[in-house]
Structure formats: C-alpha cells, structure tokens
Design a protein around this nucleic acid. Structure first.
Length: 868
RNA sequence: GCCGGGAUGGCGGAAUUGGUAGACGCACGGGACUCAAAAUCCCGCGGUGGCAACACCAUGAGGGUUCGAUUCCCUCUCCCGGCACCA
C-alpha cells in the first residue's frame, strides 16, 4: 500500500472500473425495493458550477447509502438542453445553438464522470433530441384534442428596434438589453395550457406530499384560491349608450362583497375595452393609455410602480345603492388578472386607499373593527381586516360572513352576479417567439385555420444549422422551415413558427428516464419507477417548475399514460450557492458582467463591499451584491481547478461538510485545504493500521474502559450517520460525527491484539460510513483493509446494541435554568436518586441554599433543573 | 409591492421534539520536531472581570410566554429566493 494519499492516481482508475462494469445501471425489475431519486437536470451552460456539485453530490450520497441499505436505486442524468442562453451564445460567438449545446453536454458529462457520481448513464437524455421533444409535440396535440390547450392573446415585452419579443431577463430598467430601446407591452396570439382546470386538485393533493412545508405554502399561495362574488356594476344610462357593447355593465370580482357600500369608484386596466371607448373622445386619456403600454410585463415591476390613473367620464352604478361611481383607468389594475376591472373600496383596501388619496377620491368607512380607531388620514393595517358593517344601510351590524352572503344573495336576486371561486393562478402560456425550443406542431392554413400536424409526421424537426441574430423570430425568417401544405386541404400553408416554453421539457423528463428508448411517450417501466421517491433541486424551482410538473403528471394520468397522481413523493430543496456579482453598464445601455476573480474589492468595517475595480486595468465596476451562481452573471465557480488540485473526493467532501443541503451558502473556498487534510489523514491512519497486518474485526472478549468507550462511539456514530443520511439528509453533521470518531480513535495508544481488532472494526466502520461522500478513497482503502473483497458489495454496518450499553450516565444540573453542575449517576438510577445526587452536589448547594427547592424538574437521561 | 425563507465567535457551521449555546472544522496564537522551511503532532482560542477557582454577559434589534427560549408568539432591521418569457 502507498504510504501517501494520491487522489489523481486512484480516482480515474476507480471511475474506469465503475464505467466498465456499468456498476450503477439500475434494472427495471428487482426483488429489492425500488428507490428512484433524481436531481433537477442541469442546463448545459458550458461547465458545471458549485451549485451542481452540491446538488448531484447530495443525490449521489443518498443513492450510495440506500444501495448499501439494500435498495434498487436509480440515479439518472439528463440535459435541459433548450433555452435562451444557447441563442445568446450563438449571437456572441456566431456558432449554431445546437453545436454549442452538444459540445457543452460532452464536456459536462466528462465533468460528471470525473466527480464519481453513481449515475446510470444508459438512461441519459437531452431535451433537444428529436427523440425526446417529439413527445412534447405528440402530447401537445392530445391536450389540444381534449381542450386542455387553447389559443388566446397574451401580453409580451416588445423591443421596437429589434422587432422582437424579449424575455423578462432581457428587460433592464424598462429597456431592451441589446438596443437600450424602451420596451413596450404588446398583445400577440399564443397557446395556453389550462392549468387552472386542475387548480383545486393541485391545491388539495399538496397535503399528502412529503415536501417542505414552506414549498407547499408557496404553492398554495401561488394558486391563491379565494371565495368571492363576481358581478356586474351596471352602466349608468349615458355610459350604456356610449359603450354600446351589448353588455349590462362592468364585470368585476371581489373577495370583499361585504364592503360593497363603500365603493366610491371603479377601476379598469389600460387594455380594458371600456378604456378604449372612453379614450375615443378624450385625447389626454388616450395618451395616458399609451403611457401605460410602456415598460415590460414583469409583476415585480408593475407592483412597485407609482400608482397612476385618469378618470374616464364613464359611470357605473353601485348595484345595491344605485349610486353612480366613476370608472378610472388605473395602472395598478392588471389586464389578464380576473376581469381586468375592480370595484374600488378605498376605505378598506390599501391600494385603493393610496389611489384615492392621490386623486382626492372619496374614502368611506363601512367596516368597524372592535377596539380600533378609524381615520381617513392615513391607512392602517386593520382597515383591511374583517369586521362589522356600519354605514351600510340594511347590512349594518352584520359580521363579515353574514354581510358577504347577504350581498351575494341580493346581487343574485338582481340577476347581476353570484358567488364564485377565483384563483390567482393563471393559465400557462407556452408559446415562445424563439428558435431553440420544441416547434409547435401546428400548421396555420388560410382556409382551415389551425391544423394539427398528423402523428405520422412527428416530430416536426427543428433545423439545427441556424445562427440567430437577435432580431425578429428566427423560424419566421426561414421559409424552408415554415412553408408547408395543409394536412387537411392540401393547400399552401405555414407552420407555427413559435417554439414551446422550456418548462414543457422539464415537466416530464424524469418519466422518460425510466424508459428512454420507449416507442411511446412512456411505457410500463415508468409505472415501475414512478412516483419518484426523492426529488432534489434548488429552492428557486419551488413554484413554477414543480407546479408545472405536477400539472403535467395529472394531465398524463387523465390521458391514461400513467396511473399516479403526483410525481414527487419527497422533495429536498437545496439552498442556493451564491457569489458576488460585478457588472458595468455599456455605453449603449447593455450590461456586462465580470467574474469575482477578475475583480479587486474594497471592504468597509462591516465586511461590505464599498468599491470594486478590475484587476486587469483598474477600471471601476459596480457591485450588485450577492446572488445565485449563473452563467449569465459570470459568477459561477467551475469545480475543475479544485478537482485537478485535490481530487473529486476532496471537492465532494468539501461541499458536503460545509453546510446542511437546504442552507443557502455564500461561496468561499478558503477552508478546502482542511478537507484535503482530513482525507490525507484518513489514508495515513489506515496505512498505519494495515502495515502491521490486517486482523479480524472485534467480536468478543474483555475490553478496557478506553476500548469500550471507543466501541460505544463507533456504534453511536453508525446510528447517527444512518439517521443523518437517511432521514435528516444532513450530511455535514454526519461528517462531523465521523471526524469525532476518528479523533477518539487516534487518541488511543493501545496496541494489544484485542485493541487491533477494535481498530479494524472502527476503521471498517468509518470507511463504510464515509463511502457515500468520498467513494474513491474508500474503495481504495477497503481493498487494503479487507483484501479480496470489494467495498461496493458491502452492506451498511449494523449497530451492535451491546456496544451501546453504559453503566453510568452524565446529567446536567441547573438551578433556576442556569447550568451549575454535571453529575454522574448509575444508568438505572431512580428519579429520587437523581434528585438526591443533584441536591448533594457542592456547587448546586451553593446556589440552592438551605431552603427547600420549590420544584425539581427531571428530564430523564438529560438534566435536572432545581427551581429555588 | 406581494409570497416564502434566513441572521449564532474572526470565518463555515452544530445544538434533531422548548432542556448543557458554540459540536466539528477553518483561520489565528503558543509549543514540539527541523540547520531552516513545509508537512505532522500537542496546547489555547465568544466577550468582560479575576492570579485562580469562578462569576456575569452573549444566538440581528426590541418586547412577551416559560422552571428553562438559538428553538414558541408579537414588532422591527438587513439579506436571500420566487413573482408566470433566466433555468
């Protein structure tokens, strides 16, 4: 055995052995219980970053642990290969997205292998392969047939210079990232998936999932089920004449029907038809509506905007009181949310209040909250709470529920409205005016309208030799792609030149892993592996991806493709790996990012960055704070240097020991050396033991106190580490426990034959416990400890109950909750004996005095608290 | 703005169900080994007072519940994630 640890010589060799033996290929049938664990598939941005290393090492450690526990574990891998960054890279480097993406995948696959993850590579998929995305298209058509997919208009960010639709990420401070032109809202036709049809089920079935409560809460809030009343505010006579739209009035929804007597105005979105009618005779209003079209569509931007509005001169009637109220156009009313119109109750809604204050509109209190004062001067949080009606005519004195019910009944009797459940959730728009995605399998025929591409003609293949230039929609400029004939009438027709949202790809890939070569979308192998036992991924996916995947699963079920209701039984949300972000605005308004290691910073006394400049030319750059590692912000850290310098095991060990998987971490590699030293020490310890010859592990015989304590520590550690890996999924504390075990082991000086047997037991145990984290070094050391056997075939170690038996235990004694003494009592001591031992301790007596204690609290096996 | 989460020594973090705050590391200081250095090993390491024993203070800030609070409740500050076209 080598006396020193040389990861570079052992790691590639062991990885080759695993590869050649297909050591981690999981069979689709097995007498063992199946365990399907997946980490969210990476976007092939070019190189792995530390967030990936963390994500897949967590998955790998769990997979390796559970294989040792006797399960048939599948850990697959794939590539979320469609998306915007490939088009950006294409523009920057004049290389086709397909070539760029496939080269990235090849490089990153090698990186994955060099990290020793126990992936079943026979199941690898890339979402940009026609063999994958043809099923996106096939499924799209099935959903269209069922009416789950439909077409309507949606609002997008429009760059008027590049004549192109921008992603939210490409809008910076309301301007196009490349052109610096002010962005406008524009309505275009798009395909939508009716996720709202599943809103109730998506909400209800959250309860049974083994997910973090916070994620379930976020999804509940996102779906936002609320009970309310949808009704019509009738047009005033003059308004009815001007509107002439055949409608009785303005349709609105409210969750606060009880406040209807407090309505002092109504408000509509700038895109609302009523606004257009009013603007016809009002140039100032028309200008305001134009003004509202400026800017992008991001909710964060819209919600923080200054509230602005203009009166329309049109009136609707309060349906209960018949009082007329004016309709305003307001920028805080969102088109596409409910009816795009609302009844405004400034007395009991914070946003309406702010708007009313700004434009001097009436504020009327109609709800009283017991014990809380009301003034129209400044909005207070309780104004929006439920309470008792006042100033509300016949509803006076009613509490929230009774008042809301009464109003709903009255509106129903008037034929104006009724109770309704509303969701915050909106249907999922999946059309993208981009190139690098799944083509939408629809032909637009001038005679027949939208026609499905027949199944036999799928997939509609995306041409792969195109280099986008950032203007327009790439496929719409490519006649060889879009020119076709109508499948129905045979006449000349045009393909839909939009592609699908990449969330479509990631909504079901984990089912395709189960049967990557299936001749159908999925086959019975998906039934074997699904639902997934453990899903692992970043907390940033808590809502969108996880909700779409849940919806997709239910849609597949309803088409009879699978029988499960939910895809992910358990979820581990990994915390983000953050790093500093440095940027600079270009002269044309574009934004350029710089890697943290290109930048030198000045730091104030609190550790905050106050200034930053480039190392290369000392020019100043802006510090944007810290944020998620991403290719676009150039703040990702490539693990390659670390692997080359210290080896994969050190990199794996380092990220796993640093923090709990769910914690957000700010990247820092200062203590990487410590992880390498630990592995080097482990190697030396085993070498020292083995150089005097291997022995049988301890099985019986008299032990010294020291050796008994060592065995106690070993078996407690086995217990703890198993719990940390399997139940808690907290690998950092497992590693700390193993370090404690080895520290105690190296403290021992005993070299007797029985001590060497215990040493053999401890070292074998430690290696088995460390295998999930650092499999390469453990494989090598095992061959030295137990020549002729292989670590991969060894089961998880058993806890020896005899080793856990103790004669006496230590208890903590508190006086009035403050720690005052430690006492040692027999393990089987009675409560009385424990109290007596505590009270007779000298330090305790000092604090208790002679008086009889008022109360003594005994927590068995832990502490005694004397209340004096 | 709205929804969800976080804050513990110089640093990363531990404390699992309300029960010993600071496990395990990193950095640092001292020592051993060495001609010297590296590596390794040993000791120390939250703050204040004290020769010491020990005492008091301390988990972002302020309040509360409890025999006992890092943990539960209320208010606030700052940071992170998401907000529907980044993935």
């Amino acid at each position: 055995m080598e006396a020193q640890y040389h990861p570079r010589s052992i790691e590639p060799r062991i990885q080759r052995e695993w590869d050649e033996a297909r050591a981690f290929a999981a069979p689709d049938h097995s007498p063992k219980p199946k365990y399907y664990c997946v980490s969210m598939l990476p976007y092939p941005s070019g190189k792995l970053h530390m967030g990936h290393v963390r994500n897949y090492t967590i998955n790998d450690a769990l997979a390796r642990f559970l294989r040792k526990k006797g399960m048939n574990v599948l850990m697959p891998m794939g590539w979320d290969a469609f998306g915007l960054p490939a088009e950006n890279a294409a523009m920057a480097n004049k290389v086709a997205p397909a070539k760029w993406t496939r080269e990235n995948i090849d490089y990153m696959r090698q990186q994955c292998k060099s990290l020793g993850w126990s992936i079943d590579w026979t199941r690898e998929i890339a979402t940009c392969d026609p063999s994958y995305y043809r099923w996106n298209q096939w499924f799209f058509l099935r959903l269209w047939e069922k009416g789950v997919i439909y077409k309507k208009t949606g609002v997008v960010n429009w760059d008027p210079v590049d004549m192109t639709v921008l992603a939210n990420e490409q809008v910076i401070d309301g301007r196009g990232w490349r052109t610096n032109a002010p962005v406008e809202k524009r309505e275009i036709p798009m395909w939508y998936m009716r996720i709202t049809q599943y809103a109730d089920e998506l909400l209800d079935s959250l309860d049974g999932l083994g997910w973090p409560e916070k994620v379930k809460q976020m999804q509940r809030n996102w779906i936002g089920r609320s009970a309310g009343v949808e009704f019509t505010l009738p047009y005033a006579p003059e308004t009815a004449r001007r509107m002439a739209d055949g409608k009785k009035g303005l349709r609105v929804f409210t969750t606060r029907a009880d406040t209807i007597m407090g309505v002092t105005f109504a408000a509509v979105a700038a895109e609302h038809p009523l606004a257009a009618v009013a603007a016809k005779s009002n140039p100032r209003l028309a200008a305001f509506i134009e003004e509202c079209k400026k800017g992008g569509v991001q909710e964060a931007e819209l919600a923080t905007m200054e509230k602005k509005g203009m009166p329309t001169g049109l009136y609707v009637l309060n349906p209960i009181s018949n009082e007329p109220v004016e309709v305003w156009v307001a920028n805080y009313v969102l088109w596409g949310y409910g009816e795009g119109a609302l009844m405004a109750v400034p007395g009991h809604d914070e946003r309406d209040f702010a708007f009313a204050k700004k434009y001097n509109l009436a504020i009327k209190q109609v709800i009283e909250v017991a014990g809380k004062a009301y003034s129209t001067e400044e909005h207070q949080p309780w104004y929006d709470e439920h309470g008792r009606n006042i100033n509300s005519g016949k509803y006076d004195g009613l509490e929230y529920e009774a008042a809301a019910d009464a109003v709903a009944r009255d509106l129903e009797a008037l034929g104006l409205g009724s109770k309704r459940i509303q969701y915050r959730l909106r249907d999922w728009g999946i059309s993208r005016q981009r190139y690098w995605g799944t083509p939408i399998p629809i032909v637009e025929c001038p005679k027949c309208g939208d026609v499905a591409v027949p199944d036999g003609q799928l997939p509609v293949v995306l041409p792969e030799d195109l280099v986008p230039d950032g203007s327009g929609s790439p496929l719409a400029k490519m006649p060889s792609f879009y020119e076709t004939t109508c499948p129905k009438c045979g006449g000349a027709a045009k393909r839909d030149t939009d592609t699908m949202d990449t969330f479509v790809d990631s909504s079901w890939y984990y089912m395709r892993y189960c049967c990557p070569d299936a001749k159908t979308m999925v086959d019975e192998r998906a039934q074997y592996w699904m639902p997934m036992d453990q899903y692992i991924g970043g907390i940033e996916h808590a809502i969108l991806h996880l909700l779409y995947a849940r919806f997709w699963t239910k849609a597949m079920r309803d088409l009879g493709l699978i029988t499960i209701d939910e895809p992910f039984t358990n979820l581990l949300t990994q915390g983000m790996v953050l790093n500093h972000i440095f940027s600079r605005r270009g002269e044309k308004g574009g934004i350029e990012y710089f890697a943290p290691d290109e930048v030198e910073t000045t730091i104030d006394g609190e550790g905050r960055v106050t200034a930053a400049k480039l190392k290369s030319d000392a020019s100043a750059v802006d510090y944007e704070g810290i944020g998620t590692m991403s290719k676009s912000k150039k703040n990702g850290v490539d693990p390659q240097d670390m692997i080359e310098r210290y080896g994969a095991d050190t990199a794996r060990f380092y990220v796993m020991q640093a923090s709990a998987p769910t914690d957000t971490v700010l990247w820092n590699d200062e203590s990487i050396e410590g992880s390498f030293k630990f592995l080097r020490r482990l190697w030396v310890i085993v070498h020292e033991h083995v150089s005097s010859g291997v022995v049988a592990t301890y099985s019986s015989g008299e032990l010294t106190t020291e050796l008994k304590a060592l065995r106690l520590k070993l078996h407690r550690t086995i217990e703890k580490v198993g719990d940390d890996y399997g139940r808690r999924m907290q690998f950092n504390t497992a590693i700390a426990a193993i370090r404690e075990l080895l520290n105690l082991y190296t403290d021992g000086k005993d070299k007797s034959p029985v001590a060497r047997e215990v040493a053999q037991e401890v070292l074998e145990g430690a290696i088995l416990l460390l295998t999930p984290i650092v499999p390469h070094i453990c494989t090598a050391l095992w061959r030295e400890l137990r020549p002729g056997t292989e670590l991969i075939a060894q089961p998880w170690p058993q806890v020896d109950p005899a080793a856990l038996v103790q004669d006496s235990i230590e208890l903590v004694v508190q006086v009035n909750g403050k720690l005052r003494a430690h006492i040692r009592v027999p393990a089987n001591a009675s409560r009385d004996q424990v109290e007596q031992a505590a009270l007779s301790d000298e330090a305790v007596r000092k604090f208790v005095g002679d008086a009889k204690p008022r109360k003594i609290i005994v927590v068995p096996g832990k502490l005694v608290n004397i209340v004096a």
